[in-house]
Design a protein around this nucleic acid. Structure first.
Lengths: 217, 217
DNA sequence: AATAAAGTTTCCTTACAGGAAACTACGCTG
DNA sequence: CAGCGTAGTTTCCTGTAAGGAAACTTTATT
């Protein structure tokens, strides 16, 4: 915590754009520095002035300024009010504080993991486009390729929701007692518990993108 | 905040098991009550005594006790040290604080509902590919079209997971402090709370499919 | 240039976080 | 049962820093 009357080193660096958002996230900051950054960003995103926030939160504008510039540490009560005023849930405020960063998974074209989907035969390819090791995920994307127009499919049913997008070919897709004819660029969203699946391959080769969210509660 | 010398009402209720963990999370507690609960749970899970934690955190055992019993509100510095001592990351501590608890639809190519995404400008099109009337859904797919290579995007952050699939063009996509270069057929899956978004449009026109699962618990 | 708006800093007060130590409750042993 | 040790709670106290009011500085507008 710098001497009270001195401008914060951090602040002058921010003003000069020397420390980027990215680097701040990399390095574990003191809490008040982290809060300062997040609050200021959020406020400006919301096009709110310090005076607006101060009024809504029942704080002085001086205090809001000092918090945003990491000149003081705030009490929990004040922090709660401030976050309410700028529409930043506390859970979201701290969500990046001590998180490992940047762990997205990139899957290059054609390099998804080939999987076998139960109840299906040859004549198509199922590629899983995202498979996390460790962290539990409920979102599962597939790239499905189908070449054999004579192939017959069972219907599937599982908890959750599904979104499919047709990339290539033409297909007749079943959901419950409805049949949807799909062409490239068409998409379909549905409750995955109702029996669904390819009914007829109208024009091969077919490429279908399927994103399943398994309902885990 | 109860009178300092009175036992906290909340605490006596907890001792009698009248208020369950689940219900406490449902109702938005005051921050120090929420912290008390989480810290105490974590400490006992770790089979640590108050005296151990106090020593490790450099606090008095009285202070640890008072925090755990919501008799005081703690400063951010003290909170950080306490959490380090019990191995509870701040991001995890607050992750559940204020979280809200939520027919096939065919969309033909080019006929998704055009939406405006806040913080973004002209030069691109956002088409929502699924919009249920009535039943609440947590899976939200978009088809995003971007034509203006000079366009600049903010980063987005929201609870949940996201899957994106590049259909056309080339793009540099940011997730946290990582940048991913994507070409047609490439896909990316990630925790949507970490700031993310298009960093640079490398080759337009770009068509990007984005499926967001909003985390509703 | 003058004025208003927006944000920062200084000076000051006082509330309460945090510590030390007394107290209470519980478990174990002889 | 008494004594002792352990674990946690509460009381009493003090110093510091959060938070406010207002002066000051910076920025934007006319």
């Amino acid at each position: 915590m710098p001497p009270k009357n001195a401008p914060s080193r951090h602040i002058s660096a921010l003003k000069k754009g020397e420390i980027s958002m990215d680097r701040d996230i990399d390095t574990k900051l003191k809490l008040e520095q982290y809060i300062a950054m997040r609050v200021k960003t959020r406020r400006t995103e919301q096009a709110l002035k310090i005076t607006d926030v101060a009024r809504i939160a029942g704080l002085s504008q001086g205090m809001v300024s000092k918090i945003e510039n990491a000149q003081v540490s705030t009490s929990l009560d004040t922090l709660g009010r401030l976050c309410d005023a700028i529409g930043l849930p506390i859970s979201q405020l701290f969500s990046d504080y001590d998180r490992p960063t940047g762990s997205a998974q990139l899957t290059k074209a054609g390099q998804g993991m080939e999987v076998v989907r139960r109840g299906t035969e040859k004549g198509h390819t199922y590629q899983l486009l995202s498979y996390h090791r460790g962290k539990k995920t409920t979102l599962e994307p597939f790239l499905i390729t189908m070449d054999d127009a004579s192939e017959v499919f069972p219907t599937f049913s599982h908890p959750g929701e599904e979104f499919i997008y047709l990339l290539k070919g033409r297909i007749l897709y079943r959901h419950g007692n409805h049949l949807y004819e799909m062409e490239p660029g068409d998409s379909l969203s549905f409750d995955a518990e109702i029996p669904h699946g390819p009914e007829q391959l109208l024009e091969v080769p077919i490429q279908l993108l399927s994103v399943i969210h398994y309902d885990d509660h």
